[in-house]
Amino acid sequence: MMRPRNDGATECGRREFFGFAAAGLLSVVPSFRRFVPVQDTLPSTGPSGRLWDPARAGRPLDPVVAADNDAAIQAIEKQLHCTCGCNLDVYTCRTTDFTCGVSPEMHRQVIALAERGMTGQQIVDQFVHAHGLTILMAPPKRGFNLAGYFTPAVVIVVAAAALTLVLRRWARAASGVPAAPPAASNVTAAPEELERLRRELDQLPT
């Protein structure tokens, strides 16, 4: 049932309809549309109708270029904190809802630096130089920041050692109690007491 939708003919019709609609609208009320005279289709690339109101579709975008999908560029951008206040890294910010104007700018800077032949680390350093350490998604591992990385681990290891010691002491305390030598017959109880115990046990849900 979905095939017809893929069919070239219907597709074309739909697009033509769009084109006509847009063209018709523009010819009827040209004064309402403040855009420069428009082509309904871009030259040489086949049909690509003009939207009725592009402003509703968010910020105008540039076509995606190869650098946008470059894994190395993305890896760099994932280390950089977007300065728009979104609390995300540059890559995530610029690809999340495409409304931010800051992260695409930073993205262009990264690409420009990369085109100058800088390595990833150099680019990151460049950003740190320009914006300070806040630009990094995670603090560099040196100086006081090492405390940031290793305090939890150290605390847990120390606590585990302390816990082991405490458990040792408790276990020793238990073995020190002479209450229960392993001989089974050592429980001294009258039969009726055992009987009562058994009855109580029977009353517990199984």
Binding site: A180, V187, A189, E193, L197, E200
Partner: peptide, 20 residues
């Protein structure tokens, strides 16, 4: 079984003590 015997003895005495 060995642990069972030890625990059984200990907790039976505890239960009996509680009952008494």
């Amino acid at each position: 079984d060995a642990d069972y015997d030890v625990l059984k003895t200990r907790y039976t005495s505890e239960a009996l003590a509680a009952l008494r």
